[in-house]
Amino acid sequence: MITIRERIPADNPQLVAIWQRSVRATHHFIGEKQMAEFKPLVEHYLPLLGVWVAEIAGRPCGFIALDDNKVEMLFIDAGQRGQGVGSALLNHAQARHDGLVLDVNEQNPQAVGFYQRYGFVVTGRSPLDGQGNPYPLLHMALSPR
């Protein structure tokens, strides 16, 4: 059973580890150098965003980070993908915010497909990510309930 709770500061090391495992499993276009560059950004933003942690049997297995209705991060531990954790986290976010929006790496077709199956539609595209790297982003939106 998946439970969802608000992040506490002591969760941060586990959430960063989940982020790392998730990115390594799904973002094959990102090398270890970029991972090392992104890690401090993840650590910096976790306390600044509304973060919800998914747990199975009391162990964190994924998280969603929100800035109002924008999904800034959604990462599922590599070993827990396909178990409903991502959908549970999006359901949790959708219950709190109408009209969710997000950006997803175009080079991560599994994530793009997941969001489309959930009901998100592409509303735009940027050729670079937020740090100016050549990782195109798809801008997606979920219609309000």
Rank of each mutant, 00 (worst) to 15 (best):
S22A: 15
R117Q: 08
N108V: 02
T26K: 03
D68W: 06
H44T: 12
E106F: 03
G86C: 02
L100R: 04
R21Y: 07
Q34L: 15
F120S: 00
A93T: 11
V101G: 00
D77A: 10
I76S: 04
P40T: 04
V85I: 10
V122C: 12
N91P: 05
E32I: 10
S22E: 12
M73A: 15
L102S: 06
S22C: 15
G84L: 06
Y45D: 11
D98M: 02
F120R: 01
R81W: 03
H44N: 14
V101R: 09
H28A: 07
Y45L: 10
Q94Y: 03
A95C: 08
T26G: 13
D77L: 04
T26E: 08
H44D: 14
V101T: 14
V23C: 14
S87H: 13
K39Y: 06
P47I: 03
D68G: 00
P47S: 02
P40K: 02
L41E: 12
L90D: 03
P40W: 07
I18T: 13
Q83Y: 04
Q20N: 13
G79F: 07
R59D: 10
Y118L: 00
W52P: 09
V16K: 14
V42L: 05
A95N: 13
G79S: 14
S87Y: 06
S87N: 07
E32T: 14
G62W: 00
V112M: 01
Q116C: 07
N69Y: 00
H97C: 08
A36N: 12
V23G: 11
I64V: 15
Q94A: 14
E43S: 09
Q80C: 15
L46C: 09
V121F: 00
V71H: 03
Q107M: 05
V104S: 09
G58W: 12
A93M: 09
D67V: 03
R21D: 15
L41Y: 09
K33V: 14
